[in-house]
């Protein structure tokens, strides 16, 4: 694989061998909004926030899984993309229950950050407010399904970095939910090593450390990148 050159928003940039469009943009200081992608984990292309326009392609492409090919012409911030991102965020806020002022992650939430950056300041869609449970059976952590955006970062970090595969998905569509072990209370999930990687990886207030109150749950998702890089490339500096 070779270094490639491509154009992002009219600017000629270089990308490391094998980089995705998202990585190429980051290497060059261009910000593309993301939620499901987390450095150090595999990519799934699920949240659709990182969609970009690629010249010559009729479809929008998710930057997190699209290879940065030689000569590609990418636009990351068109009017159309901004409109779509804003609606995607509205859909997320309306889907479950995201009342920021009473959330443990208030001020440290990636969903909140994305909305602020996109200028999404109100939701035109009816709030669905499903009646979802909060599981606090684990000694150190809890999961509030009302705040979950189904990014599957917890599932991937637990499977790929911790090797425990405690988390998984059950149900489909709007009934999809993250579960622990065989859909048991987290406290009964014998595969859980209580490492806390899922709590660091979770972008919202869904997974929290017990005892946190409003605004106290700070996720250190950069630790996930550090662990992954340390393992893969023997890089030990954070």
């Amino acid at each position: 694989m070779k270094v490639t050159t491509l154009t992002i928003n009219g600017e000629l940039v270089s990308a490391s061998p094998g980089a995705t469009v998202l990585e190429a943009a980051r290497e060059n200081g261009i910000r593309i909004p993301t939620l499901c992608a987390l450095e150090g984990l595999s990519t799934v292309g699920a949240c659709r926030l990182c969609l970009v326009e690629v010249k010559g392609s009729p479809r929008l492409q998710p930057a997190c899984v699209t290879a940065a090919d030689e000569g590609m012409e990418v636009s990351t911030d068109t009017d159309r993309l901004r409109r779509y991102r804003s609606m995607i965020l509205e859909l997320l806020f309306a889907e479950r229950n995201h009342v920021c002022p009473v959330c443990v992650a208030n001020g440290h939430c990636e969903l909140q950050d994305r909305a602020r950056q996109a200028g999404m300041d109100h939701v035109r869609l009816p709030y669905q407010h499903p009646d979802l449970p909060v599981d606090i059976t684990h000694a150190r952590f809890g999961v509030d399904h009302n705040r979950c955006i189904l990014c599957t970062r917890c599932i991937r970090v637990c499977d790929e970095l911790e090797g425990a595969h405690t988390w998984d998905l059950a149900g489909r569509g709007t009934n999809a939910r993250v579960i622990t072990d065989l859909n048991q209370p987290w406290g009964d999930a014998v595969s859980c090593t209580s490492c806390g990687k899922c709590a660091e990886a979770c972008p919202t207030g869904a997974i929290f450390k017990q005892g946190s109150t409003v605004g106290e749950m700070e996720h250190r998702s950069d630790r996930i990148r550090f662990i992954s890089a340390a393992r893969a490339r023997k890089e030990w500096s954070p």
């Binding site: 799934v44 292309g45 997320l92 189904l150």
Partner: peptide, 21 residues
């Protein structure tokens, strides 16, 4: 479509619910 959406990506999972409503 709402009932059969797998729920992986947000626009389909939540969008079909809103459109149906």
């Amino acid at each position: 479509c709402m009932d059969e959406s797998c729920g992986k990506c947000l626009p389909c999972r939540a969008g079909t619910v809103q459109m149906h409503g």
